[in-house]
């Protein structure tokens, strides 16, 4: 567990200094709060989930294919990604140039009592992403890794996977809407001009 050392609240703002340059889909729990905090709770460039576990990557992929001129990120946790890890192979098969995944891996199920997760027991999601066929992989295990990863997130020209290892401290304490329809409507109005 010794390499889960970074603080998500410190690393994510360095990785995504201009969050409004992206459309962002998040998985449930911690990464949802990370991104709402990063973008500001009144922003409409993100869609956060509070359920539908395993859906973040395919939802982001559907958005990326629909909006090829925008950069689309999925930010999700290790547990959410493991729930539907095959979606990494779907991303590799489609390889949208405007799309990438940021996995905030703390090695624990933080929302449910901090049980140790598969990555905490040795599963390596970056290796799984590479095995799935994703061409651009970046690991962020200490602060010296942040610069390269931030560049890939900003200008990468193939689907990418950024693997952040963070300690199991809490994500940002921020209130967000859990209304899935409201969030959808706000996102579409901002992006498309229609509800």
């Amino acid at each position: 567990m010794s390499d889960f050392t970074l603080d998500r609240n410190v690393v994510l703002p360095l990785l995504i200094p201009n969050p409004h340059d992206f459309l962002i889909v998040t998985g449930l729990a911690g990464p949802a709060r990370d991104i709402v905090h990063l973008c500001g709770p009144n922003s409409s460039n993100f869609y956060t989930m509070a359920g539908a576990m395993g859906g973040a990557v395919p939802m982001g992929l559907g958005l990326a294919l629909a909006q090829p001129d925008k950069r689309v990120l999925v930010c999700t946790g290790d547990g959410e990604l493991m729930m539907n890890v095959g979606s990494l192979a779907v991303v590799a098969a489609m390889n949208p140039l405007n799309f990438g995944i940021i996995c905030v891996d703390n090695g624990h199920y933080g929302e449910t009592g901090n049980q140790i997760s598969h990555t905490g027991l040795g599963t390596d999601l970056a290796v799984m992403a590479a095995g799935a066929g994703i061409k651009q992989i970046c690991t962020v295990f200490d602060e010296s890794d942040i610069g390269d990863a931030a560049d890939m997130i900003k200008v990468g020209n193939a689907a990418f996977f950024a693997h952040l290892k963070v300690h199991d401290g809490p994500p940002a304490n921020v209130k967000r809407s859990l209304d899935a329809n409201y969030t959808k409507t706000a996102f579409r109005k901002a992006l498309l001009g229609i509800p």
């Binding site: 889909v25 395993g54 958005l63 098969a93 489609m94």
Partner: peptide
Amino acid sequence: VHSIPLTTEEEGVAMAAGAHLGGQ
């Protein structure tokens, strides 16, 4: 069109929602 090979069907449910977010 985009023709997308899934590994499991539930991916298509989430993809459809993402497509709608993006207007497709």
